[in-house]
Write a protein that binds this DNA or RNA. Structure first.
Lengths: 205, 205
DNA sequence: CCGGTTCTGTCCAGTTACTTGACAGAGAGT
DNA sequence: ACTCTCTGTCAAGTAACTGGACAGAACCGG
């Protein structure tokens, strides 16, 4: 792969550690309480840091929530991406596997469960939907990139459309699961298979 | 196991990060130069930190080297310990497996290779031998602990002796490998098997 | 509708951690 | 003897985190 694990100077690593410590602290708190019940002070204390430091690092509660969601999203995207790369030989299979992986792990993810199941998380929920522009764009971009890099013959425009639609569907099913995750994944990907096969056919010729 | 991954406050994590960043930087430098050619300033710069900070964290070059070696030792001990725990049902097997694991990974370990193969590392070498008291004691203690916790019937005194002797042998073979690591491990452990079996026999009765 | 409470977001004084530049002393090389 | 370099230490300066305070907004109970 790329992304050499190059040596990181301490000051950079320390800032990253600070941010992650705060985000981890918030996740930990979410395991026992609703987001609405967790104050900025709680998060700071749980991270062993002053409230001021928290505000300096993330400007506001809203920004903090945004970053929290985005971080979780990136880790989902990492998993999805590697799942896709394991089926470069069979695009439909890649789609099915990635969607299945996403829905399955989404159903178990603590942060997502907090958003979906509990009532005090409207603020977080909005970040996935009405306020979800950064999330959708970022996720669609990464999906598009993995598609074009994995199947270079596919036109970027087609990949972008597919990425955008899949991300929106994924979010929808994550927010409102429809029974068994694997069944949903199989159903949805079967729906896309004709389109994917058409893409492959067009570009293969 | 024990050691719950409890939440670490940032200030503690940051100090640990600083120390590890410095130690990692030294290891990295060791991959391209002899220990004698690496100055404290080099290490500080490589870690993205001032020389003063390095001296504040580790009092002197000697202490730094000591910690460097001890950190590597702890990671070896972790591996050895888990190897032993996988053969709790067969003490002789545990001994053989652990010794083999140690010698094999010792032969590949960058820090140890730097000490053993290159000429500018006498200062580090001393930490394994003439200055090696802290190392030997610590390693023998951990070995003793894993033995008594794994086979509670064995007398602590016997475990201590065995631990001490094994650690010294391990260090000796690490410093001066004698041909194939696995062959050495098999030979040495065969030598101890009668003693181990005697221990087991005595305590089983 | 009002007083009490809590939380957010901001400010500031104070402490702690890291940086920068400097210097004496030890050791190696010329 | 002279120069160079590195170690170890000091002092002054800067940046990061702390702790206490406060105005404003939202909520709650009366």
């Amino acid at each position: 792969m790329s992304a050499a694990p190059q040596r990181v100077p301490y000051s950079v690593a320390a800032r990253e550690l600070l941010r992650n410590t705060l985000l981890d602290a918030a996740c930990h708190e979410l395991e026992s309480r609703h987001w609405a019940d967790i104050t900025m002070a709680d998060i700071a204390v749980a991270a062993g840091v002053s409230r001021q430091t928290l505000y300096k690092e993330f400007g506001s509660r809203e920004e903090f929530a945004q970053v929290l969601v985005m971080r979780e999203a990136e880790s989902f995207l990492d998993a999805v991406e590697s799942s896709v790369r394991q089926h470069l030989d069979a695009p439909p299979k890649a789609l099915a596997a990635a969607f299945d992986l996403f829905l399955t792990s989404a159903a178990e993810n603590p942060l997502l469960r907090a958003i979906v199941l509990e009532e005090g998380a409207e603020e977080l929920l909005a970040l996935l939907t009405t306020q979800g522009k950064p999330l959708v764009e970022r996720a669609a971009d990464r999906l598009t990139d993995v598609v074009v890099s994995g199947w270079p013959l596919i036109r970027r425009r087609d990949a972008e459309l597919l990425g955008d639609v899949l991300v929106r569907l994924a979010i929808s099913y994550a927010a409102l699961p429809d029974g068994d995750a694997s069944a949903t994944a199989a159903a949805v990907s079967s729906l896309f298979q004709p389109y994917v096969e058409k893409l492959v056919r067009e570009t293969a010729s």
